[in-house]
Nucleic acid binder design. Structure first.
Length: 487
RNA sequence: GGCCCCAUCGUCUAGGCUGGUCUAGGACACCGCCCUUUCACGGCGGCGACACGGGUUCAAAUCCCGUUGGGGCUACCA
């Protein structure tokens, strides 16, 4: 049994797109599931659109996603690896040309001297008259004549045979195409550069790719590729054309949209394992029914192409949020803590003033509440900066009422009386005060929260007060009391 | 225009191949209740779909045809 070899072949003409990431992920997961090899190949033949900066950007995307490859070119900071290289298409031109010329020599391709204008005119006429395009006259040219004129400007076209082409697709089933729909396509440009179709086929064959898993925008192209595989005497790989990723409106996920760049999700506080989990679910259903939450390792074990979906799916941010929250909750506290500290630091807060134990407590208190890592900022900013303003609504409800000042005064006294300051002692003190005065706990908690944080929502009050410390808490309470006097 | 692919709750989907067990199951979102100092988490419940039209059949979400809608290809881009 030959081992599985699959690949992702991105064109480094921008950042790592979410759609490319899906295809990479499916290939990668499939390779990992089967114990096969995952190859990265850069399709950088279009020099105008390729840029080393994009190579770096894409590498960052893959790295963050934790999608690693077994063979590939030097990519970003990664060194090259693999024996079937080079893995940059631009360095494989000679191989492509060799294949093209071989087809020419075998009479399976021909030199075409038609002008672009004539070709365009015929294409237009054919469309208007609702007929297939006429065969190019060069097709009938004596190969010897073509050989003679080879210094003239020309392209090399593949001679599509008559009949039908069938592509066996893992996802789409067998797709049959009338070869008349595929007119003799160009395989070598006038400057000798290969066209995409030739390059992929040659590279996939030479790199011994067994499974071509890619977007269904290539489904029609697959017929051309199969023809080329056959003509070149290469074994056809197994094809699987996956639906592309749609945005929330059901349109193709545009490059311009926020979230199109995989790193947007990193910057927005998402976990790579959550994104991977989500995207995998976007086109694959676990055999185990009613299960959605998977770690990367679990995904690698469960992933099966029998359950790949044929229909396109929209990207639903809300569901990703939920999954992200689930993954955050599943995270080891120490790991979560490290990520949260980094985010707070990045937000400009002086994290050095707190110690490790303090952050451990903060993490413990917030782990259940986060759906994205970045939410830690709004959840805990008041620990790092003074409360300078109070939310309007809770001020009205808690402070702009009869007896608010008296209550605050009582609460301050109550706090002052707490000797060993922590969540339990403070809570006990509040309970005691409540019993004494007959005021409900909620009536005391909310004004206190407002004074300590300026907000109406946040971590548990006693927990956050513990974290804030007695002194700071009291200072803020007194400040709140002063504020009440101005109302 | 031609050709190809797709079509179940708002969204992701199960079921379809091997019609009856589907008055269509789950998840997210939404709504309500419970838990609760807030928010979140968790628990319970609710709302909510087989695109449309024909056909085959005793019986169709499931099979066939058509229509509509969406996507793709139709390059000397990848």
């Amino acid at each position: 049994m030959s081992t599985v070899r699959c690949r992702i072949a991105p064109s480094p003409s921008g950042f790592l797109h979410i759609g490319t990431a899906k295809m990479a992920l499916f290939n990668w997961l499939y390779a990992r599931k089967t114990g096969g090899t995952f190859v990265l190949r850069l399709e950088d033949t279009d020099a105008e659109r390729t840029d080393e900066a994009f190579v770096q950007a894409m590498c960052e995307g893959f790295k963050w996603l934790r999608v690693d490859w077994d063979e590939g070119p030097a990519f970003g900071e990664e060194g090259p690896r693999g024996d079937l290289g080079p893995y940059r298409q631009s360095e494989r031109k000679a191989l492509h040309q060799e294949a093209g010329l071989r087809l020419l020599a075998e009479g399976k391709a021909y030199r075409c001297f038609c002008s672009k204008e004539d070709l365009d005119a015929e294409r237009e006429a054919a469309q208007k008259e609702k007929r297939h395009r006429k065969k190019c006259p060069c097709r009938l040219l004596d190969p010897a004549e073509g050989e003679q004129r080879k210094d003239e400007q020309h392209t090399v076209r593949f001679m599509v045979p008559e009949g039908h082409t069938e592509v066996a697709d893992l996802v789409q089933g067998t797709v049959k195409t009338d070869n008349r729909e595929l007119d003799d396509f160009v395989i070598l440009k006038p400057n000798g550069d290969p066209i995409f179709h030739l390059a992929v086929v040659v590279d996939d064959a030479l790199m011994q790719i067994t499974h071509v898993i890619r977007g269904d925008d290539h489904l029609t192209n697959a017929a051309r590729h199969v023809l080329l595989f056959d003509a070149l005497g290469y074994e056809r790989p197994q094809f699987a054309h996956l639906p592309m990723v749609l945005d929330d409106k059901g349109k193709k996920f545009s490059k311009r949209l926020h979230g199109a760049n995989v790193l947007d999700w990193r910057d927005d506080g998402y976990l790579p394992e959550a994104l991977i989990n989500y995207v995998a679910l976007l086109g694959w259903t676990p055999a185990e029914e009613n299960r959605e939450l998977f770690t990367i390792e679990e995904l690698q074990a469960a992933f099966a192409p029998e359950r790949w979906s044929k229909s396109a799916a929209r990207f639903d941010r809300k569901k990703l949020d939920w999954l992200n929250g689930q993954h955050i909750r599943a995270l080891e506290p120490a790991k979560l803590q490290a990520r949260l500290v980094a985010i707070l630091k990045g937000a400009g807060f002086d994290t050095a003033q707190k110690d490790d134990a303090w952050f451990a407590t903060l993490t413990e208190v917030c782990q259940e509440k986060l759906s994205t890592l970045n939410q830690i900022v709004e959840l805990s900013d008041f620990f790092f900066q003074e409360v300078t303003e109070y939310e309007e609504k809770p001020v009205k409800k808690q402070w702009q009422v009869e007896g608010a000042a008296e209550l605050m005064t009582q609460l301050i006294a109550c706090m002052e009386g707490v000797e060993d300051w922590n969540r339990d002692t403070l809570k006990a003190a509040y309970h005691a005060l409540g019993e004494e005065t007959g005021v409900g706990l909620g009536k005391m908690v909310h004004p206190t929260r407002l004074a300590l944080t300026g907000k109406s929502i946040g971590p548990g009050l006693f927990e956050l007060a513990e974290l804030l410390g007695k002194e700071t808490s009291l200072t803020r309470m007194r400040k709140g009391l002063e504020y009440i006097a101005t109302l």
